[in-house]
């Protein structure tokens, strides 16, 4: 059953650009990967980071700058962006990992604000305008990612799309593997009962730090990819709004579920696209969604569905 579901989703991913506007799908995939990376931290380790935009946006700036000014190929750009986000994650992690809960959220938020100020003030980030006209470049120096195909009269950036899709699949697979490995099980144990995990001899701080670095790196992958898709790294990417949005995506889809963040990211991004004509009402809608979600379905979409399946009395299985 599970294998069929994955195969169907994979095929849907392959076919998507022919059915929906490709740039929109790419945006969905970037944010879905971002939310999945975030979920590794909050859903499986129980740490709420309110500064994940720093990794997402920070990597976008690093990749954008290097691809634009140092002539890096896109795949190297994404790799370097990921590594930069991982390094940032390591530094953030060392500072925050000893604090928990609310303090952890506040510290990550404050540290992310430092990154925001750097993006705003540093000479190489373009200030308020952001980093514009990032070239999409040649994948491995061979395939032009900027190439547009014309299928049935519609311009489709298929090269770029499959590049993004592959990155998403790799990122998703890494997270999936991490969650279902012994490492993931220990993370869950830490989330449920930290003192007990310590007493069992696990080096809890080190494991949490590792989870934080993985999460930050993959959030960076998403941001780096996003900077190639939109050819732009902007202040929005590093702002606390983005940190809040990724929390909402994950919460809405379902904390600690594999597919939840993807569903949540799709919902939020689609919502923003639909409401983009209404200006700042988008912020209000996002805020209301937050409130409703926290008050009435904390399990999220996928979490609720799983709960329904789990609690269905035996004999009713069809």
């Amino acid at each position: 059953m599970n294998r069929k579901l994955w195969a169907a989703l994979f095929l849907a991913g392959l076919a998507a650009p022919f059915l929906i506007y490709p740039v929109f799908v790419m945006q969905l995939l970037c944010f879905a990967l971002f939310a999945c990376a975030f979920n590794l931290l909050i859903g499986y380790t129980g740490l709420l980071s309110f500064g994940h935009a720093a990794f997402f946006g920070g990597a976008a700036y690093v990749t954008g700058y290097l691809v634009k000014n140092a002539g890096l190929t896109p795949e190297l750009g994404v790799i370097v962006g990921t590594l930069a986000a991982g390094l940032m994650g390591y530094i953030f992690g060392i500072l925050t990992i000893r604090r928990q809960g609310i303090y952890f959220a506040m510290i990550t938020l404050a540290l992310a604000q430092v990154i925001y100020f750097i993006a705003l003030k540093a000479p190489f980030t373009g200030g308020e305008d952001g980093l514009q006209d990032v070239p999409r470049g040649m994948f491995l120096g061979l395939v032009d990612l900027g190439h547009t195909y014309h299928v049935a009269g519609k311009p489709l950036e298929l090269n770029l799309y499959y590049f993004v899709f592959i990155i998403f699949c790799i990122g998703f697979w890494i997270i999936h593997r991490a969650i279902h490995s012994p490492f993931g099980q220990i993370l869950k144990a830490i989330r449920e009962n930290e003192p007990r995990a310590i007493s069992l001899g696990y080096k809890v701080e080190r494991l949490k730090l590792l989870a934080f670095v993985i999460s930050a790196s993959l959030a960076g992958t998403a941001g780096a990819t996003k900077s190639l898709v939109f050819q732009l790294a902007s202040l929005t990417d590093v702002s606390w709004h983005t940190s809040g949005e990724v929390v909402l995506m994950t919460l809405l889809g379902g904390l600690g579920t594999v597919l939840g963040p993807v569903v949540g990211a799709f919902t939020v991004v689609a919502l923003q696209a639909e409401l983009s004509a209404f200006g700042s009402w988008v912020t209000v809608v996002i805020g209301v969604t937050f409130v409703v979600c926290v008050l009435s379905f904390r399990r999220g979409f996928v979490g609720e569905v799983l709960e329904k399946i789990r609690t269905r009395p035996p004999g009713q299985n069809d």
Binding site: L48, I102, A105, G244, V247, L251, T283, V284, I286, G287, V288, T289, F290, V291, C293, V294, L295
Partner: peptide
């Protein structure tokens, strides 16, 4: 924290 964040956005 999340609830009050939502309220702040509203």
């Amino acid at each position: 924290l999340l609830l009050t964040f939502g309220l702040a956005l509203i």
